[in-house]
Design a protein around this nucleic acid. Structure first.
Length: 102
DNA sequence: TTACTGACTCGGA
DNA sequence: ATCCGAGCCAGTA
């Protein structure tokens, strides 16, 4: 398979371009990657990220503006977002920072 | 090769 | 707003 058709490579590239302090959804990343129904696979890709990756995976949340991770991973993602100034209200991301697009 | 998985989403109730 | 069932599809085994 060629580089441009590699879904994982596209996902990396798209997420790497999300500005600090802003977030997007799995579905939006999937759409931008050219596979609108592959939202689950975006999560699947992120789950397999190498330890030392600098990819801002924490800037990707579900369509409700909530963190989909559980337990310690949930805490780490929330902490990373708070550190960037992302605002939460009742466990959901404030509409101001939700909905980033190119 | 086939079978199963699931950091999701949509539509309906 | 919440809950649930069904569909999706790139990885993985």
């Amino acid at each position: 398979m060629s580089e441009v058709d590699n879904f994982r490579q596209r996902v990396f590239q798209i997420i790497a371009a999300i500005p600090s302090g802003q977030v997007t959804t799995y579905g939006e990343v999937a759409r931008m990657a050219g596979s609108p129904r592959a939202a689950r696979q975006v999560g699947g890709v992120l789950k397999k990220l190498p330890e030392g990756s600098t990819l801002p995976w924490h800037r990707v949340v579900n369509r409700h503006g909530e963190i989909s991770l559980q337990g310690e991973d949930f805490k780490r993602q929330r902490q990373a977002l708070l550190a960037e100034g992302v605002m939460f209200r009742a466990g959901k991301i404030d509409l101001l920072t939700f909905g980033w697009k190119f």
